[in-house]
Simulated assay, not measured.
Amino acid sequence: MDATTDLRPLYQDAADQLAKLIDAVTPEQLGLPTPCEEFDVRALLSHTVGGMHRAAYIGEGGHPTDVAALVGEAADDAWPAVLGRARARMAAAWADDATLERPTAVPWGTVPGRAALGGYFMELVTHSWDLAQAVAPGTVLDEELGRVALAFAEQALPAERRGPGVPFGPVRPAPADADPTTRLAAWLGRA
């Protein structure tokens, strides 16, 4: 990823990937643990869709500390609709090309909009991997999305920048034949 990359189309592809995973989640699976240790499936869905609303809010010009829980609980069968609303808001918030260049406040500082979007893209791809591991192990995730998210993570989150206050564990080894999204998960301390 370079300073001119427009991640909006890939973000929408990542949201499509998440939507397919969510469509397959059964109510019985909502309490399953995920590789993101602090979340079961239900909490992971709330966090991930909430992250999409937060990304939309900052795309609209808001500050990330202005919002807390953006989704909360949803009915067991409502997650596809909840995601649909977040996706529509996200697309509208980032539709203007100027949003990519505007200084944007995010939890990790103030960065150009495209870098902020990169962080939320990485999060979306990573949490899709978390969800797939919990409810559909063996699911093949989009390799291009994984490659781009991994490149962003390696650039934005060097291995030596882990520890207190950083929500990612130490880099873990990934199998030599791991797909890009599994390598991303390992880079972020999972797998």
Rank of each mutant, 00 (worst) to 15 (best):
G84A: 14
A91I: 02
D76H: 11
E144Q: 15
V148D: 02
A55G: 11
A149W: 14
L150D: 14
T110C: 05
F39C: 03
V140M: 03
R161I: 00
K20Q: 13
V111F: 15
G189Y: 02
G62T: 02
G50S: 12
A78Y: 13
L100A: 12
A3G: 04
G169Y: 10
Q12R: 15
G169Q: 10
A174T: 06
A149S: 10
A191N: 13
A116S: 12
D179F: 02
T26R: 05
A43S: 13
V140Q: 07
P9D: 06
M1Y: 11
Q155R: 08
A185H: 12
F168R: 00
G189E: 02
L157H: 04
M90L: 15
E38V: 14
S128K: 05
G165R: 07
A178R: 05
A19S: 13
E38Q: 14
A116D: 08
P175M: 03
P167R: 13
T182M: 07
G146Q: 09
R102S: 02
G31F: 03
T4L: 14
A88Q: 11
P33F: 05
A93T: 00
E154K: 14
L141F: 14
T104P: 03
R147P: 08
A3T: 10
L100D: 01
V41T: 10
D130C: 10
A178T: 04
Q29F: 02
E73P: 00
S46D: 10
D97A: 15
L150S: 15
A75V: 11
A149D: 06
T104H: 05
Q12T: 14
T104I: 06
P158C: 11
D13V: 12
T104F: 05
V67M: 01
L131G: 11
T181Q: 10
L157N: 01
R8K: 07
L145T: 12
E144C: 14
V140F: 01
A86T: 08
A156N: 01
D13L: 14
T110S: 06
G118R: 14
T34M: 13
W94R: 01
A56S: 08
I58E: 00
P64Y: 00
P137L: 03
I58M: 02
L141T: 08
L30D: 00
P35S: 05
P27H: 07
Q133R: 08
G118D: 05
Y57F: 12
A178D: 06
A149N: 06
W94Q: 02
I22S: 06
P27I: 11
V82H: 08
G109S: 07
R85H: 11
A191R: 11
D16E: 12
G189R: 00
G138Q: 00
A134Y: 02
D96T: 05
G59A: 09
T126V: 10
F168D: 00
D2N: 09
S128Y: 11
L70S: 02
T5M: 14
Y57W: 07
G59D: 05
V106A: 10
Q17D: 14
A186Y: 13
T5C: 12
L100I: 10
A149M: 09
A191Y: 09
A91G: 01
V106F: 01
R147V: 15
D142V: 07
Q12W: 15
